[in-house]
């Protein structure tokens, strides 16, 4: 299978990339890891006039935590960089748990975090982790940078709030003010398949009391499901059998699964409930051991 013809540009600075996007008038597409875009080009679901390959722009492959605990992920940070990170599990455990579940190991050597978020697939893993943790995208255009909260970033399947002349230069995921706890669970038929259902849970703990709770779901709706309100019933509480049951029921209630070849809607909702319960129960056990 072959993509349509396109003009290929390989800028070496972000400014140059933005100038090309600006000139293209909306007919250009940014290529980072290409693990979603190239298949879409080959299937001709996408046929941009110009491809702006950002892989030759130096200095975008970083991920680091700043003084305030916020994690910054550059546009060329690959999934494997996060998977192999030795510090991520301490500062952002939800992301660390998701890192090894994104696609398959070979795709992870090439695909990027920011590219995956910009692809805006309703089944994307990273979008769910971003939403559960109040993450945002930093977009740069001809007039400078702006911050787009994850909740506002995706307008629909494969559509984002980025203007045609803007490039997502980094993603930022706030850190916890207390102890960060969280995880990500995903049910897939085989490695690399789209999620049947997946759940991201992120907690900010003060001792054994939950200060903040975040949750988002993938694979169980036409978009990444924001379950932050649903899981907020945990705030101010400790992880007990009752609070865990209440939270997993509340989160399962906001899922919007549809019956398809991966399972019935009732099955997928059950998976969501089970995953929330499993994540929280495991975290409660860890807390008990630590105490």
């Amino acid at each position: 299978m072959y993509p349509n013809r396109f003009d290929y540009e390989s800028p070496t600075t972000v400014e140059e990339a933005i100038a090309i996007l600006d000139r293209s008038g909306g007919e250009a597409k940014v290529l980072s890891g290409g693990q979603s875009l190239i298949p879409m080009l080959k299937l001709r679901f996408a046929a941009p006039a110009t491809i702006v390959d950002i892989n030759n722009i130096p200095g975008l492959d970083y991920h680091h935590v700043d003084d305030e605990g916020n994690l910054h992920i550059g546009a060329l940070c690959r999934h494997v960089d996060l998977e192999e990170s030795t510090t991520l599990a301490d500062t952002h455990p939800t992301l660390a748990a998701a890192a090894e579940l994104v696609a398959d190991p070979i795709v992870r050597t090439r695909g990027t975090f920011v590219g995956s978020v910009c692809h805006a697939d309703p089944q994307g893993d990273w979008a769910a982790t971003m939403l559960a943790q109040g993450g945002y995208v930093v977009a740069q255009g001809p007039n400078g940078r702006r911050r787009i909260d994850m909740g506002d970033f995706v307008l629909g399947p494969f559509v984002t709030a980025l203007a045609y002349n803007e490039m997502a230069v980094e993603a930022v995921i706030p850190g916890a003010s207390g102890t960060p706890r969280g995880s990500y669970l995903k049910l897939e038929r085989r490695v690399g398949d789209f999620a049947t259902a997946s759940v991201a849970v992120s907690l900010d703990m003060d001792g054994d009391v939950i200060r903040k709770a975040g949750c988002a779901l993938a694979g169980v709706g036409g978009r990444t499901i924001d379950a932050n309100d649903a899981i907020s019933c945990l705030v101010g509480k400790t992880l007990t059998e009752d609070s865990i049951d209440q939270a997993s029921d509340a989160v399962a209630a906001v899922a919007e699964p549809r019956t398809d070849h991966r399972g019935s809607d009732a099955y997928k909702r059950h998976i969501v409930q089970t995953f929330v319960k499993r994540i929280l129960t495991n975290l409660a056990r860890t807390e008990q051991k630590a105490a």
Partner: peptide, 21 residues
């Protein structure tokens, strides 16, 4: 993964990369 090659020593799917890259 049948088309896997090593790109700077790491495995990539060569059907999902442009030759110019």
């Amino acid at each position: 993964g049948a088309c896997t090659v090593l790109f700077d020593g790491r495995p990539v799917k060569s059907c999902t990369m442009l030759a110019v890259q």
